[in-house]
Simulated assay, not measured.
Amino acid sequence: MSSTKVVYLDFDGVLHPSSPVMDGLFSRSHLLEPLFENSNAEIVISSSWRFTHSLRELQAKLPSHLAQRVIGMTGNAVIGKHARYQEILYHAKQLVSGANWRALDDSYWEFPTSCKELIRCNPNTGIGPKEVGLLRTWLTM
């Protein structure tokens, strides 16, 4: 089993509320920075933003410490049940056999209900203390 930890990161509903009118885009990204300071975990962007922005453009939107952890994006869109989950599984198998991963995402319907790897964010607020705590615990295991 690999010791590599990978966080699959969605943007809308995670790094900012799904409707970021009040808070602005990426308003919650600062909450992730301390979690990655003492971790070797890597980030893969699973957000649909990957269809309209290059990897470099997406990295530029993140705080520099997080941007340095980004190693790529998931690939082509999958059509069907639990699409995001399927995209992540395919990427994780290509990346490292046995990669230990978590997904920060608000689109819970894109994952099976039994998916222990999903850290579900509230789309109205984005990532908050509960999700930060879950991610911190996993990163330090």
Rank of each mutant, 00 (worst) to 15 (best):
M1L: 13
K5Q: 15
V6Q: 02
Y8L: 13
Y8T: 08
D10A: 09
F11W: 11
G13V: 09
V14D: 10
L15I: 09
H16V: 06
S18L: 14
M22A: 10
D23C: 11
L25W: 15
F26D: 04
S27V: 09
S27L: 02
L31A: 05
L31V: 01
E33R: 10
P34F: 02
F36W: 02
N38K: 12
S39G: 01
I45W: 00
W49F: 14
W49Y: 08
R50M: 03
F51T: 10
L55K: 08
R56I: 15
R56P: 09
E57N: 11
Q59T: 05
S64G: 08
L66T: 03
L66A: 03
A67I: 06
A67K: 06
I71Y: 00
G72P: 00
G72S: 06
N76L: 13
A77W: 11
I79E: 10
G80T: 01
H82W: 13
R84M: 03
Y85N: 04
Q86W: 02
E87V: 05
L89E: 15
L89N: 09
K93R: 13
Q94L: 12
L95C: 05
L95M: 10
L95D: 07
A99I: 04
A99G: 07
R102N: 03
Y108Q: 07
F111W: 04
P112F: 06
T113P: 06
L118N: 01
I119D: 00
C121E: 02
N124H: 15
N124R: 12
T125G: 12
I127E: 01
I127H: 06
G128H: 12
P129T: 11
K130F: 11
V132T: 00
G133Y: 00
G133T: 02
L135V: 04
W138D: 01
L139V: 03
T140D: 10
T140L: 11
M141T: 11
